[in-house]
Write a protein that binds this DNA or RNA. Structure first.
Lengths: 343, 343
DNA sequence: CTGTTAGCGCCTTCAA
DNA sequence: TTGAAGGCGCTAACAG
C-alpha cells in the first residue's frame, strides 16, 4: 500500500521534483518532451497526487461541506445530488454530513468540516437554530443556508437560498380556491419555524382576500414526518370534517394523511382533495400521485452552490444575500373540484 | 477567515509547540496544569486542529470512502446512513460519492478517493464490473464490496458483504408456494448480474423441488428501475397472464408492477399477489404495503464497516472473505392465497 | 526551461 | 516535563 510520491518520480526521471510539480499542474514552464516523459512515468508507477499535501500547501481544498438533516429523507437526497452535480461543474467536491446524530449542536459538525479545511459550507435545514449557527460562524467560514427561510427583520446576517414560501402558500390556496374549494384545512402548521410561518401567511392571506378562513391543524414537533401527518389526519377525520380539501404543509405530512384517509375509507380526491408541498419523489409513485408545490431543487441547488462559491472567491466583501426561488405547481391526481369526480 | 494554528497557541502560552501538540493529543507527558492552561487558551482563541496537516503527518485520515450508485435511490440512502453510523462508532468518518456521473469507469472515483488518502473504500454496487475494479485495486487500497454477490469460482480476490441472495430467492419461492401459488412469474431477472443469478437460482431450485416452473421475464438493462418494472408489468398483463403471483426481483421493479396493475384494473393482492426484494422505505408507504424480502441494511452496513476496518488495521495479511447476511421476510399486504381475499 | 529552498500545520523521535 | 529539529507530500517564489 506504499504510495509513490512526487520525489520517487523525480528520482526515476532524473529531474528535480519541482519540475514534476510543474508538469503535473499544467504549467507552461516545462518543455513538452520532459512533460510527456514525466506523465508517462507517472502513469507507469501509478502516481496519484496527494490531495491533502496539495491542499495544505495551497491553503485551498476545493471541497465544500454539505450538511443535511438526514440523507434518508428523499427531499434532501435529491437536493444533495443536485448540489454535488452543480459543485462538480464548478470544480468543487462535496463532503456530505448528516446532522441527525448532532441535533441541537450543529456547531460540532461545522467544526468537523472546518477542521477538514472545507472552503465553505452549505447548510440545508429548516430548523431555526440553523441560521443562528451560521450567523455565529460567519467570520469563520463562508456559508449559505439552503431550503429554509430567514426572517427579514432580525439581526442574523446569513447568506440564504430558499423557495419563496409565501408565494408557495399563496399558490396553494389559489389553486384550491380556483378548483372551487372554500372549506379548506391547512394541516401541519409549525409556528416555531419561519419557513412555515411564511408559507402559512401566504396561504392565509390569499384566503382572506376571498373572505375565507382555513381550519388549521398545528404541528408542534420540530419536523414534519409521515407519522405526524398520519396522526393529524386521523384527528381530523375522527371528528368528521366538513372540509373538501386539505393543504398539507409538506409532502411527508401528505403521505401520512393518505394513510389516515385510507383507514377512514375516504377516497382522494373524490371525497377530499389533498395538496402537498415539496414534490418529493414519493409523490409521483403509483397510487400516490400527489399534486404538490415543487421547490425546484435543481434551481435551489445551483443557486446555492454559485452563491457559496462566489463568497468563497470574494472573502473581502462581507455583505450577504437571500435568494428567492419561485415555486411551481405540479399537477397530478390528488385534487379535483369539490363533490366531483376527477377529470 | 485566518485560522489560528498550534504555533499561535504556543506563542501566547509561552511554550514550544511540541507541548501543545502533546497536550491536544492527550499524551500523559504533560503536567496537568499546563495542559489545562493550554486547553483554555485553545478554546478562547477558537483553535481547531487542521485535520489535513495531522493526516499528512500521521499517514492516516480515519476516513473511509463510500461509493454508491445514486444516493437518491432509497436503498442506498438508507445503507449510507447505516454505514456512517457504524463507521462513526469505530471512530471513522465517511466520504460519500455517487458513481452516477462515472458509470463505467469507477476507477476514476476510486482514484479520487485514494488521492484524498482515505484509509479504505466501501463500494456499494450490483454491477459486475465493480468486483473486477476492486480486484484491480486490491494492492492499492483496502476495500470491500457491499450489496453485490461475487462468484465463488472466478479469479477475483475481493472482500465482500452481501445478503445471501440464493437463500433470499428460495425464501421468496417458498413463501409464495406456502400461500398456495403454483403459477408464479419471476419478473426482472438480470442474467448478466451474479447477484441476480444467485437470487434466481435459489428461487428456481425451490420451485423445481415441487416440480414447479416459473414464468420468467428477463430484464436486459443494467439496473432495476420502476420504469422497467412498469414495462415488464404491462407486457405481462397485456398478454393476459394466468399466474396468481409475481416475484419482482427488486422492490423498485415491484413499484412499477403496481403502477401497471393499476392501469389494467388488477387489484393487489386480490387478483394477483406481489412479492418484492430489498425492503426499501417506499415499500411501507400507505397503499403500497409491499411484502418483501429484507436485505437487513443495518447488519449489512455494520458487517461491511467492521470488515473494512479490520483489513485497514491488518494490512499485512492479504486474505479476503465474503460475508453472507441472512435475508428476512417482511410481511405486509401485497400477498395472499390465490383466489382469496387477504386476511 | 529547470533546480533550490522555504514553507503549509502537525507529529514524533531525540535530547536536555 | 519540555524543547529542538526533521519530515509528511506538495507548491511557489527565487535563482540560475
Amino acid at each position: 500500500m506504499k504510495r509513490v510520491t512526487i520525489k520517487d518520480i523525480a528520482r526515476i526521471a532524473g529531474v528535480s521534483y519541482a519540475t514534476i510539480s510543474r508538469a503535473l499542474s499544467g504549467s507552461r514552464e516545462v518543455s513538452e518532451q520532459t512533460r510527456a516523459r514525466i506523465l508517462e512515468i507517472c502513469k507507469q508507477e501509478g502516481y496519484r497526487t496527494n490531495a491533502l499535501a496539495r491542499s495544505l500547501s495551497c491553503n485551498k481544498t476545493n471541497v465544500i461541506g454539505l450538511v443535511v438533516p438526514d440523507i434518508t429523507n428523499p427531499f434532501y437526497a435529491e437536493l444533495a445530488l443536485e448540489i454535488e452535480t452543480s459543485a462538480r461543474r464548478l470544480n468543487y467536491n462535496v463532503m456530505l454530513c448528516n446532522s441527525v446524530h448532532y441535533e441541537d449542536n450543529i456547531g460540532e459538525l461545522m467544526d468537523f468540516l472546518i477542521s477538514h479545511q472545507v472552503d465553505g459550507i452549505i447548510l440545508a435545514s429548516s430548523h431555526n437554530e440553523a441560521r443562528a449557527c451560521l450567523h455565529e460562524y460567519r467570520q469563520v467560514i463562508p456559508s449559505v443556508l439552503v431550503g429554509a427561510s430567514v426572517s427579514d427583520n432580525d439581526d442574523f446576517c446569513v447568506n440564504a437560498v430558499s423557495v419563496d414560501n409565501r408565494a408557495g402558500g399563496r399558490m396553494a390556496a389559489e389553486y384550491l380556491i380556483g378548483l372551487g374549494h372554500q372549506d379548506i384545512v391547512y394541516l401541519g402548521f409549525r409556528p416555531a419555524s419561519i419557513t412555515h410561518q411564511l408559507r402559512f401567511s401566504g396561504f392565509q392571506r390569499a384566503m382572506q382576500q376571498r373572505s375565507l378562513t382555513p381550519t388549521v391543524l398545528e404541528n408542534h414537533e420540530s419536523s414534519s414526518s409521515l407519522q405526524i401527518g398520519y396522526q393529524l389526519g386521523k384527528q381530523l377525520f375522527a371528528q368528521g370534517t366538513s372540509s373538501t380539501a386539505i393543504f398539507a404543509a409538506t409532502d411527508s405530512l401528505a403521505l401520512g394523511v393518505i394513510q389516515a384517509a385510507d383507514e377512514f375509507n375516504l377516497r382522494i380526491p373524490e371525497d377530499i382533495s389533498l395538496l402537498g408541498f415539496d414534490n418529493i419523489s414519493y409523490a409521483a409513485l403509483p397510487k400516490i400521485t400527489l399534486t404538490t408545490i415543487d421547490q425546484r431543487k435543481p434551481v435551489l441547488a445551483e443557486t446555492a452552490v454559485k452563491h457559496l462559491v462566489s463568497v468563497i472567491e470574494h472573502p473581502d466583501d462581507d455583505g450577504y444575500a437571500h435568494h428567492m426561488i419561485r415555486p411551481a405547481l405540479v399537477e397530478r391526481r390528488s385534487c379535483c373540484a369539490p363533490g366531483r369526480q376527477p377529470d
